[in-house]
Amino acid sequence: MTAKDVDSGPAIPPAVESAWGLRERPPRGPRPGLNAPAIVEAAVRVADADGLAAVSMSRVAKELGAATMALYRHIASKDDLLLLMVDLGYGPSPEPAAPEHDWRAGLTRWAWAEHAVLRRRPWLLHVPITGPPITPRQLGWLEAGLRCLDDTPLPEGEKMSVLLLITGYVRNEATLTNQIAEGSRAAGVEPDEMMPAYGQMVGRLIDPARFPALHRVLRSGALGQSDDPEDEFAFGLDRILDGIEALIRRRAA
C-alpha cells in the first residue's frame, strides 16, 4: 500500500505516512538494515536511558553505528523523529475491557494504563504536542477509550471530550509527579520527606490570622505526612469519573 491508495484530502505529512507504512522505501544502499523503524527504536532507547534532551540525529546515528546523514534518507527531520518516537513510546493500547465491565471500569483501566506508560517513560511528557493524535498506536489508544463509552447515551462529540478530559488529567498528574521527584532529587531530599519538610516550613512562615484556612490544614497534620502519588492519582480520577457519571445520568434522563 502506498500514499496514492489513500483517499484524496489534506496532504499527509511524510512522518505520518511512515508511521502507517504508506511511504515508499528508499532504494537499497550500503546500509540495507537501516530503516525508519530501526532509527525510531534506537531513539527511544536513548530517551529511555538518558532522557529526551539526549536525543539528536547524531546521537541516534552513533547508537546505530551509521553516519548522521544516512538517517535523513529515512526520517526527514528531528520533529518527524519525535512524532514517531511518541507513537512507539506509548506502545499498543490496553486490551478491551471484559464484557462484564461497565464504562467506568473500562475508563479506569484505560487511564491507569496511560498513567503507567508516562511513569515508565517520563520523556514522553517533554515532547511538544503539535496536534491531535494521528499515528497508529495513538489512534489505537483513542479507539480503546471510545469503546469504553459504547453503551452510554453520550453523543459522539461528548465521548471525545471525555477522553480529552481524562488524558489531560493523566498527563498533568504525571508531569507534576515527575517534576516533584526531579526537584527532590536535585535538593537531595527523598520524595517521601518533601511534604513533611514543606509543612514545617509553611508553619514557620504563615500568620494564622492571615491564612486561617491553610492554618487549619497545618493543624490537622495533613501536610505533615507524605502523600502516595498513586493514591492522589486515584482520588482525582475518581472525582472526574463521578462527574462523567452524573453527565451520563443526565443524558439518559
Rank of each mutant, 00 (worst) to 15 (best):
106 G>N: 00
133 P>F: 00
80 D>W: 00
128 P>M: 07
96 P>K: 05
106 G>K: 04
99 P>N: 09
131 G>L: 01
138 Q>I: 03
86 V>L: 08
133 P>E: 04
117 V>L: 05
97 A>F: 00
87 D>E: 04
80 D>K: 06
115 H>F: 07
106 G>H: 00
98 A>C: 01
135 T>R: 11
124 L>N: 06
127 V>K: 08
116 A>Y: 02
95 E>C: 02
94 P>Q: 02
93 S>H: 12
106 G>Q: 02
121 R>N: 09
86 V>S: 11
117 V>R: 15
81 L>G: 10
85 M>Y: 05
90 Y>K: 07
137 R>C: 07
125 L>Y: 02
105 A>F: 03
111 A>Q: 02
123 W>H: 10
103 W>S: 11
81 L>M: 15
116 A>T: 14
82 L>A: 12
123 W>P: 02
112 W>S: 05
105 A>R: 11
88 L>I: 04
120 R>C: 11
114 E>K: 12
102 D>F: 03
87 D>M: 05
105 A>E: 15
91 G>D: 08
107 L>H: 05
84 L>S: 05
92 P>D: 14
91 G>C: 09
126 H>K: 10
120 R>D: 15
117 V>I: 14
136 P>M: 10
99 P>M: 09
97 A>Q: 13
97 A>E: 08
99 P>D: 13
86 V>T: 13
118 L>H: 11
92 P>S: 13
106 G>D: 03
94 P>M: 03
83 L>G: 10
123 W>G: 08
81 L>P: 06
103 W>R: 07
82 L>I: 01
95 E>Q: 12
89 G>L: 02
95 E>K: 10
139 L>P: 01
131 G>R: 10
81 L>V: 10
118 L>T: 11
128 P>W: 04
102 D>I: 01
98 A>K: 12
95 E>W: 00
81 L>C: 10
121 R>F: 03
109 R>Y: 00
119 R>E: 13
130 T>W: 02
128 P>R: 02
112 W>A: 06
139 L>N: 04
136 P>L: 09
98 A>V: 08
111 A>D: 02
106 G>E: 02
116 A>P: 01
123 W>F: 13
87 D>F: 01
100 E>H: 12
116 A>R: 13
85 M>L: 08
140 G>R: 07
114 E>Q: 15
84 L>K: 03
127 V>P: 04
140 G>S: 08
122 P>G: 08
109 R>W: 00
133 P>Y: 03
81 L>H: 07
87 D>T: 06
127 V>W: 02
90 Y>M: 13
